[in-house]
């Protein structure tokens, strides 16, 4: 099994722990990830609101480079996953945008044909690797640990290609396979605050607080997420949330970190020491 890997900016920066744990887990599962050569920004966020076509051209460049190899692309960051998929769809549906992007890419000697599939690691783990294969690799199950599985918005909206839009379950299944218990969490796909934590903090912080508070109330020891922005918002703003609302003190970790632990990987190689709110509670018992 081999895939192209599109890290995007987050996994090389604030989401370093996601990259470390993702690569470690895939390596342990015998799945090869090859980083896309000379990748650039996925085209998400600011570009989209300034000029759609420029944003699609950025995405298009990554996709055009990826097309040289007949492999699916794994985009672990939710914003990249959505941005690249959205670009694929727009280029498919709107010939005028496609024409502009084609022209832009031609200037760089690149061609876009829409051949590659952009996929999320959850999709690959569940549907390609399979729960059975993963279960076989679980060396020290996370018995007694209780998590709130939190998916965020971008991997289920507007495209819900591999999971239920309203009640996604793929991560629940992985965490259960890792031996952990999932609390019933009705806020699975609710907004983490997104970029509002920085721009309109009175709104953004409240949204983040709601999620952390509910996870605590449901008895979770940590929120497990799939998205670097969610992780950043929920983990990094807890001091401000404590000042504005109350202290929640809730660790926020990536699903790959939890899975890696159950597979017997070390806290260090999974980046578990990088959390702002200490994730030591997740390590308890090992």
């Amino acid at each position: 099994m081999k895939y192209l890997y599109f890290p995007g900016c987050s996994l090389k920066g604030t989401g370093k722990a996601y990259e470390e744990s993702l690569l470690a887990v895939f390596r342990a599962l015998g799945v090869e990830l090859k980083e896309i050569d000379d990748w650039n920004c996925c085209g998400a966020t600011a570009y989209m609101s300034v000029d759609e076509a420029k944003s699609y051209a950025l995405a298009g460049r990554n996709l055009a480079i990826a097309e040289r190899e007949e492999l699916d692309v794994i985009a672990p960051c939710s914003a990249c996953y959505l941005g690249l998929n959205k670009a694929q769809k727009s280029l498919q549906d709107h010939p005028e945008i496609r024409a502009r992007v084609t022209k832009a890419l031609a200037a760089a000697g690149l061609e876009y044909h829409g051949k590659v599939k952009v996929r999320h690691p959850l999709d690959v783990l569940i549907n390609d690797v399979g729960l059975d294969a993963i279960a076989k690799r679980i060396k020290s199950p996370l018995k007694g640990h209780k998590f709130a599985p939190y998916y965020g918005c971008q991997i289920v909206r507007p495209f819900a290609s591999f999971d239920d839009q309203y009640d996604p379950k793929t991560m629940d299944k992985l965490l259960a396979a890792a031996g952990a218990e999932n609390v019933t969490f009705p806020l699975k796909t609710r907004c983490c605050g997104g970029s509002l934590t920085g721009t309109v903090p009175e709104v953004g912080l409240r949204l983040a607080y709601i999620i952390l508070k509910e996870a605590k109330k449901r008895g979770a020891e940590a929120v497990v997420t799939v998205c670097p922005l969610c992780q950043f918002n929920l983990d990094g703003y807890q001091d401000q949330i404590a000042r504005k609302f109350e202290a929640v003190d809730m660790p926020v970790v990536y699903f790959t970190q939890v899975l890696g632990l159950a597979m017997g990987l070390s806290a260090d190689e999974l980046g578990l020491k990088r959390s702002i709110i200490s994730a030591d509670v997740v390590l308890a018992g090992r």
Partner: peptide, 8 residues
């Protein structure tokens, strides 16, 4: 929009 047991 939704029916939830999430209490505020």
């Amino acid at each position: 929009a939704e029916v939830t047991d999430w209490a505020m």
